[in-house]
Simulated scan of single mutants.
Amino acid sequence: MNLKTIYASLRADLSLIEKEMELSLCTEEPILFQTSKQLLKAGGKRLRPVFVLLSGKFGDYHIDKIKEVAVALELIHTASLVHDDVIDDADLRRGEPTVKAKWNNQTAMYTGDYILAKALERITLIESQEAHITLSETIKEVTIGEIEQIRDQFNWDQNLRSYLRRIKRKTALLISVSCRLGALVSDVPKHQQKHLERFGYFAGMSFQITDDILDFVGTKAKLGKPSGGDLKQGNVTLPALLAMSDPYIKEKITATLKNKNTNEKELNEALHLIKSSGAIECSENMSNAYLHKAQLELSNLPACKARQSLEKIAEYIGKRKF
């Protein structure tokens, strides 16, 4: 079983979720219609809906119920990306112009707000107070994570704990909640819900660390955006954090990036220092450690096709190149 096989097995339900997202964002307001349409057209891995669906397979699976969770969580993720692009002043995402680049910052911010509102509208169709409380708590934590990232831009004196807390809020939490809510609305036994939730957390941490590694070693063609963007924007991710334990590298990087008009040659020199420091390999080891923990959580669940699919997705997270 590979990733394509997993997605193929879920094709009908994922197609339904895609259509429901389109219906949710349908509006007579022309600009919101255009911006929302562009975002949906850009697509993505749709990992969160996949985690929702597969977690639901451990219980009483009904697509008409579980689709509401999948749509809501993917819309929340999409809204956060639109806001991220404004904060990061990003012109490209997945190889396409961002909303802020094609329109402007104000349009992008209100588009993100609109998508978030539609996500909350969808989740009200789930008759579970626990699901509502979980989702509101998640949105709060994700927002705190975004604020922390803004606060820590160009802060070269961060520690590992603050980085891990930030990526938990930025990425891992939404993946963890995808597993939890998919299981919750499908009446999966509580102890299995906990294992799925923890699996999602560990897989999400690995996913973000891999993302941060790819920003240094990936290509623009594969990433859909220029490499080294995080460093240029002053976002201190794991490879940079580990490399800067060397005072010489830290001094070189901070001196280079103090100048907001850093040219491509200077940025490439900073990237080379990090890549040759061993920090990439150490980051990969940490990502793999989280994946191992994720697989251990799955070992506590019943052996079934859904568990095999989650195991394969975890493997993909650790090996992906984009």
Rank of each mutant, 00 (worst) to 15 (best):
V50M: 09
V50I: 13
F51A: 07
F51M: 13
L53G: 03
L54M: 09
L54W: 07
S55E: 04
S55K: 11
G56Q: 06
G56I: 01
G56W: 04
G56C: 07
G56D: 03
G56H: 09
K57M: 08
K57C: 00
F58N: 05
F58P: 12
F58H: 14
G59K: 12
G59F: 06
G59Q: 08
D60P: 10
Y61D: 05
Y61S: 10
Y61C: 10
I63S: 11
I63A: 10
D64K: 15
K65P: 01
K65E: 10
K67T: 02
V69I: 10
V69G: 02
V69E: 02
A70V: 05
A72H: 08
L73G: 05
L73Y: 08
E74L: 10
E74N: 13
E74I: 05
E74A: 13
E74Q: 15
I76E: 03
I76M: 07
H77M: 09
T78G: 02
T78R: 06
A79H: 03
S80Q: 11
S80C: 12
H83Q: 07
H83W: 06
D84T: 10
D85S: 09
D85V: 08
V86G: 06
V86R: 11
V86E: 04
I87P: 04
I87K: 08
D89K: 15
D89R: 15
A90N: 11
A90E: 04
A90Y: 08
L92I: 03
E96P: 04
E96Q: 15
E96V: 11
P97F: 11
V99L: 12
V99N: 10
K102H: 13
N104R: 14
N105L: 02
Q106P: 01
T107G: 04
T107P: 09
A108G: 05
M109Q: 05
M109R: 08
Y110M: 14
Y110R: 14
G112C: 03
D113Q: 14
D113S: 13
I115E: 02
I115F: 12
L116A: 05
L116E: 03
A117P: 10
K118C: 04
K118A: 01
A119P: 08
A119R: 13
L120D: 02
L120Y: 15
R122K: 15
I123G: 06
I126D: 01
I126Y: 09
I126G: 01
E127N: 15
E127F: 12
E127C: 10
